[in-house]
């Protein structure tokens, strides 16, 4: 297993009122993303535990694109990765942001 951590400054706070959300499942080629509204509005962080070792640069690129596109201010993402491809990672991150942007608990 390899641990990766990313922290970004972002333009805007993520929408919605939900405090947390979870998408995905930990399996081969899949991952789970737990997202929590726990950071200051201008920050976001991603903590990744991945079974695929040596893909730090790919993660850097995928996370950079994601943060640029969604500006997920105030959110912390905790990821358990079973070795998902970059497109699956992007999809799950987008799903997580969409889910926490809903109103509710």
């Amino acid at each position: 297993m390899e641990d990766l951590r990313f922290q970004h400054r972002v333009r805007t706070r993520a929408g919605g009122t939900r405090q947390s959300a979870i998408v995905g499942v930990v399996a081969s080629g899949n991952l789970e993303v737990l997202v929590e509204r726990v950071l200051p509005d201008a920050e976001c962080a991603l903590d990744i535990k991945t079974a695929a070792i040596g893909f730090g640069e790919v993660w850097t690129a995928v996370v950079g694109d994601f943060v640029e596109r969604y500006s997920p201010g105030g959110l912390r993402f905790s990821i358990n990765d079973g070795g998902a491809r970059p497109d699956t990672v992007s999809l799950r991150l987008a799903q997580a942001v969409r889910l926490i942007a809903e109103n509710g608990q």
């Binding site: 297993m1 947390s20 979870i22 789970e32 737990l34 535990k49 079974a51 905790s78 358990n80 079973g82």
Partner: peptide
């Protein structure tokens, strides 16, 4: 005890396997 509590298996790390939050 939802996933945000992070009550993962204490044993999978022995096998270097990924955990799931629930």
């Amino acid at each position: 005890i939802g996933p945000e509590q992070r009550e993962v298996s204490p044993h999978l790390k022995i096998f270097d396997l990924p955990e799931q939050f629930d």
